[in-house]
Computed example of a mutant assay.
Amino acid sequence: MTEAVAGRSLLLSALLRLARNRAAIASAVVLALYVVAGIVGPMVWLHDYRTVYANYVKVPASLTPYPRAEEILPGAAAALRRARLTVENVTVVGDTATITVHAARPIDPRVTRYLDRSDLFADARLVSLADDALSATFAADVARHTFLVGTDANGRDLAARILISIRISLMIAALATGVALVIGVLYGATAGFLGGRIDNLMMRVVDVLYSLPFVFFVILLVVFFGRNVVLMFIAVGAVEWLDMARIVRGQTLSLSRREFVQAAEALGVPPGAILRRHIIPNVSGPVIVFMTLLVPKVILLESFLSFLGLGVQEPLTSLGVLIAEGARNMRNAPWMLIYPSAALTLLLFALNFLGDGLRDAFDPRDR
């Protein structure tokens, strides 16, 4: 007796086809790295994305820690100038700076706080004070800071800002795309399968929603939901489903005339089961491709809303906001545009390649 051969499920077959697509697998790895960077990166990075380094505004990327040797003397002079002290000499041995100063009036030992407030020094202390208190020697640890991709116009570490922006952009894209996917697929498949007057009525509702001014609608969402980013972009996803619904409806109208759907209807299969088992799986290819286009669309939409003051608010940021800031400073700080743009470009390439691979893997005609 011939032994029965175990069959493969449709999902397993699709995953095996996907595994043979090297570009899709590489893109999936890149996206996984983005997710890990967005979740873990801000918590383990050298700098906090909210910390402002007033002494390091728009400094370029460097593997060498700041401050440079030639910056220590001007930095000490600027910090102690507020205490009306004149810096005579600064000597640096290792990571300890010895600062000699004099003044026209007695020096208060508490002026070390001016050095501690500077980003260049830490743990400042009085070493010696002259008998007339008009000259003194201070010692302070040189605070070393490494900015691998430079700082922004406010003196914040750009790498930390990129990591938190990846988290925010991916979160916004996932929420909005997920909501648009669920609503659009169910709505479009139902309208296309039922057809007739119900289809006509449901599509007229879509046309009415298309006619609403988007910015006005978003302002209403902000009024109702406040500045909560999560709730607002869930609501934005509830608007972005319109294109998804039209695409799915068109595919469903084509599929509803196919033999396997008519056979299921003749056998008495309920409409809900036909939608779930025959219609929706067969529209997965176009839906996945559209999802890969919707994710960057949502990211760009978020940057537009943030530019209007309706999206992500400080101290949070996103890739769109960073690129907009970099464009304004590209003449004197090109790294503010280059690195966020490279991060967004790599993300979009990965999404497109993965979307193509998923489309090919889940295409029913390739089964």
Rank of each mutant, 00 (worst) to 15 (best):
A103K: 04
G94M: 10
T100M: 09
V101K: 04
V101P: 07
D116P: 14
V111L: 05
D119Q: 14
V93E: 04
R117L: 15
N89D: 07
N89R: 07
V111E: 08
N89W: 01
L115A: 05
T112N: 14
R117W: 13
V111S: 03
V111D: 12
V92E: 01
L120V: 08
P109G: 07
T98Q: 10
E88A: 11
A103C: 07
V92D: 00
T86W: 06
T112S: 06
S118A: 14
I99D: 04
P106I: 08
V111I: 12
P109N: 12
I107V: 10
L120F: 14
L120N: 10
T96E: 15
T96A: 06
T98A: 02
D116Y: 15
L85S: 07
Y114M: 03
V92C: 00
L115W: 06
F121H: 08
R110G: 10
D116V: 07
N89I: 02
A97I: 00
S118Q: 07
R84E: 10
G94A: 12
D119C: 14
R84L: 03
F121M: 14
D95K: 07
D119T: 12
V87L: 07
T98D: 01
H102P: 03
T112P: 10
R110V: 15
N89L: 02
T91E: 02
S118G: 15
G94F: 11
V93H: 03
T91S: 11
V87A: 07
T91I: 07
D108E: 10
I99Y: 01
A104N: 05
H102M: 12
F121L: 09
T91Q: 02
D119Y: 11
R117H: 15
T91N: 08
T96K: 02
L85M: 01
L120T: 06
D95C: 02
T96D: 04
V90P: 04
V111T: 09
V87E: 02
A97E: 01
P109I: 15
D116K: 14
A103T: 03
V111N: 12
A104G: 09
V93C: 01
P106K: 00
T96L: 13
V93Q: 03
T96P: 00
S118D: 11
T96Q: 05
T100D: 12
L85A: 09
P109F: 08
H102Q: 06
P109M: 11
V87S: 04
R110E: 14
D108K: 11
L115F: 08
T98Y: 13
G94W: 06
L85C: 04
L115E: 09
F121S: 09
L85G: 02
P106D: 00
L120D: 06
V93T: 05
F121E: 13
P106L: 01
I107M: 08
A103V: 11
F121T: 10
F121R: 10
E88G: 06
D108T: 05
S118C: 09
R113M: 12
D116S: 14
